[in-house]
Design a binder for these strands. Structure first.
Length: 426
RNA sequence: GGAAGGGUGGCCGAGCGGCCGAAGGCAGCGGUCUUGAAAACCGCAGGGUGAUGAGCCCCGUGGGUUCAAAUCCCACCCCUUCCGCCA
């Protein structure tokens, strides 16, 4: 959520930011409602001040045993007016709030202008895509042939875009989760969280999934619960409506969770394999930091995600999202992308964002620099470290052998009981 | 799911419809005293809006009654205990 004061004092800056994003935003309507609200508030507050004053007089008179029926009668009218004004204010504020909730964040000045994802900018590249001296297969073929991924039975059990992992495949997924959690907790300084996988409307609104993106999520009928599309939601909302002690910042959390996405509107895209699923595993990094540190923290966050790819020996590049692709809530976003032989290109495997105070304002997450000062909004960041299913797919493809087996990356072997290869079932 | 009890400031905990943004205690901060510390004593200390002012608002949330609600009424949410069910 943007600061209403910013919209009020510099509406052109906001309009320009929306134009750069290619987003429509009801700025004029916001300004009109804001003005209306402030006029009403001024009026009602004057009346309330009078009511409070007179109430005291009534109390004093009654205590003195005097009759106060005249003032009481006079105040009835004032009270009615107050009630009417309060009703109108509530109505105006509701509408204003609804509008503010659908206005996206302002991209940081370092974000390049662009009109589509084609305008994203590659910032660095690591590793060399392997040259195969045989025809490399796609991970769905590799996994199916090895008997470690079962798409058909998953479709029977749940439907399209679900996968059953089996044997060494299930273990490899679990190994990746544990490996990532261990690296981030033991070497990058994150505290592990295992959050609820369902979250309520307030939480979804706090991080920005609602109200705009309801159709992307699974909703549990008859409840106020949504299945989380990312651990960002429960973990960021851990500190909703809190005032954090400045000494505690920065806070780093890492959380494994299953993630659930309806993928409405993705018909026909990535229909095969693990790339686009209704349910997938992810290890998510979340930070709460001081505003002045958030861009340094973003760079460190990306580096933490990249570290996993390097240790796994997976070639990747990092793209900086342009204004058109930065995402609703983010001010700046980097996407680490892994080399995927079956796609013949780099595929998003993480997404690291600085939301500045956009989420903090929605979720009311603040901190106090020192005991005397007013609370300020924190900056929140998050990034995948990494998407586990896509990582497994990348390993199958990049580490495949001509005989159909897959070599297990060095770093994962301790998590696989020393296993070095996944061989086809006998 | 059923029954009972409860949600007040960082924590504990009072609160007769008006003098309650709210006693008291603890923790915190500043000071006096002390070589220093503790103790004792004095003082400051919630959040929002706004200009560090005035005013206004906030006692789980939302309605209602009233000239006036932390206090009365209704609904909802959450917590605790007991029972039932259950991984």
């Amino acid at each position: 959520m943007l600061d209403i004061k910013l919209i009020r004092t510099d509406p052109d800056k906001v309009r320009e930011a929306m134009r750069r994003r290619g987003s429509e935003a009801p700025i004029d309507e916001v300004l009109a409602l804001d003005e209306r609200r402030r006029a009403l508030v001024t009026e009602v507050e004057q009346l309330k001040a009078r009511r409070n004053q007179v109430s005291e007089e009534v109390a004093r008179a009654k205590r003195a045993g005097q009759d106060a029926s005249e003032i009481i009668a006079a105040m009835r009218e004032v009270s009615d007016r107050i009630k009417a004004l309060d009703d109108e204010i509530r109505d105006v504020e509701d509408r204003l709030h609804q509008l503010l909730l659908v206005i996206p964040n302002i991209p940081h000045e370092s974000v390049p202008f662009g009109e589509s994802d084609a305008d994203n900018v590659e910032v660095r590249r690591w590793g060399q895509p392997r040259r195969f001296d045989f025809e490399p297969k796609a991970h769905w073929d590799i996994g199916t042939r090895l008997g470690i991924l079962d798409f058909e039975r998953a479709a029977k059990v749940a439907g399209a875009r679900f996968t059953v992992y089996k044997g060494a495949g299930a273990r490899l997924e679990r190994a990746l989760i544990n490996f990532m959690l261990d690296v981030h907790t033991q070497e990058h300084g994150y505290t592990e969280i295992l959050p609820p996988f369902l979250a309520n409307t307030d939480s979804m609104t706090g991080t920005g999934q609602l109200p705009k993106f309801a159709e992307d999520m699974f909703h549990c009928e008859g409840t106020d619960l949504y299945m989380i599309p990312t651990a960002e939601v429960p973990v960021t909302n851990l500190h909703r409506d809190e005032i954090l002690d400045g000494d505690r910042l920065p806070i780093y959390y890492v959380a494994y969770s299953a993630c659930f996405r309806a993928e409405a509107g993705a018909h026909g895209r990535d229909t095969r394999g693990l790339i686009r699923q209704h349910q997938f595993n992810k290890v998510e990094l979340v930070k709460f930091v001081r505003p002045e540190d958030s861009y340094d923290e973003l760079e460190k966050l990306v580096a933490d995600a990249e570290d996993i790819l390097r240790r796994l020996g997976l070639p990747y590049r990092v793209s900086m999202m342009c204004t058109a692709d930065v995402g609703f809530a983010a001010a700046k976003k980097y996407d680490p992308e892994v080399w995927m032989p079956s796609y013949g290109r780099y595929v998003e495997i993480s997404s690291c964002s600085n939301f500045e105070d956009f989420q903090a304002r929605r979720a009311n997450i603040r901190f106090r620099r020192n005991p005397k000062t007013k609370p300020e909004y924190v900056h929140t960041l998050n990034g995948s470290g990494l998407a586990v299913g896509r990582t497994l797919a990348a390993i199958l493809e990049n580490y495949q052998n001509e005989d159909g087996s897959v070599t297990i990356p060095e770093a994962l072997r301790p998590y696989m009981g020393g296993m070095t290869r996944i061989e086809p079932e006998a």
